[in-house]
């Protein structure tokens, strides 16, 4: 028996919107720790890891570990039927081939339940080792989204370089080139508007902008984004989900031929 009640149901709606462009089908894993997902995109270039900790739910019952295969477009269709202020409850019985999403309006005058068929998904689970990163950049998520969008109108790849001067995002295409430098800026009115760079040593890596733009679909989940970079490692683009967990996107770098 599984029963997860999330008062801030809009979080779940935002999570689905954040990942459904990147991943088509995925297993949602439920355990005592929380509600999690790990999935690769169809090209096996990027990986998304989601964790919503059990403590973040108003009610969390998970009698035994359960893995539920879902088509994310179908989940999204169901969750789009929930109001932004609705309380969402996810329910499943052991051994059942369906999951139920229950939506309650804030004043309890409307209750809806949507039952969705589960699917068998044979997915690889990758071990992600802890790594020390050469540079970690924290910046406003909206700023990062804007940079990725702007650069993708010029080129297909972005070179992210971190030096003591700041973080530079560069691209080149048929019509020309673009460079955007963000300097460390801690003296802002609100902490979420700061750009903070922790650099052990300079690093420069190249990534496909298509994936970066897809990661920025998670922007509504968090005001800040953390970008962790090391030579010869996938970049980690992390959006924290307030007091509940995170979405982390891993993207393999491009290398020179």
């Amino acid at each position: 028996m599984l029963e997860l009640r999330l008062v801030q149901g809009s979080l779940l709606k935002k999570v689905l919107e954040a990942i459904r462009e990147l991943v088509t089908d995925a297993n949602f894993d439920c355990s005592a720790t929380g509600f999690s997902l790990q999935a690769m995109d169809s090209s096996h270039v990027a990986l998304v890891a989601l964790l919503l900790r059990s403590e973040g739910f108003e009610h969390y019952r998970c009698d035994r570990n359960l893995s539920m295969g879902m088509n994310l477009n179908n989940v999204s269709k169901m969750l789009r039927c929930a109001g932004n202020n609705d309380i969402i409850t996810v329910k499943a019985d052991d051994g059942s081939d369906t999951v139920t999403f229950m939506f309650e309006s804030p004043n309890q005058d409307k209750i809806a339940d949507f039952e969705m068929k589960l699917m068998d998904i044979d997915s690889e689970h990758l071990g992600i080792p802890d790594a020390e990163y050469q540079a970690i950049v924290r910046m406003p998520s909206s700023e990062f989204a804007r940079i990725c969008k702007d650069l993708s109108s010029i080129g297909d790849t972005v070179i992210i370089s971190v030096t003591k001067e700041g973080v530079k995002f560069s691209t080149a295409g048929d019509i020309g080139t673009a460079n955007i430098v963000c300097r460390q800026n801690k003296t802002v009115d609100k902490p979420e508007e700061a750009t903070i760079i922790e650099m052990q040593e300079p690093v420069s890596l190249t990534f496909a902008l298509r994936y970066m733009n897809s990661f920025t679909k998670a922007t509504p989940l968090s005001e800040t984004v953390t970008i962790s970079l090391s030579s010869d490692l996938p970049v980690v683009v992390e959006y924290k989900i307030a007091e509940m967990g995170y979405i982390r996107f891993y993207l393999a770098p491009k290398i020179e031929e």
Partner: peptide, 14 residues
């Protein structure tokens, strides 16, 4: 030109 690496180059399957 650059080559796109795969994610499983970096992370092992469990």
């Amino acid at each position: 030109d650059s080559i796109q690496q795969g994610i499983s180059t970096f992370f092992e399957e469990l």
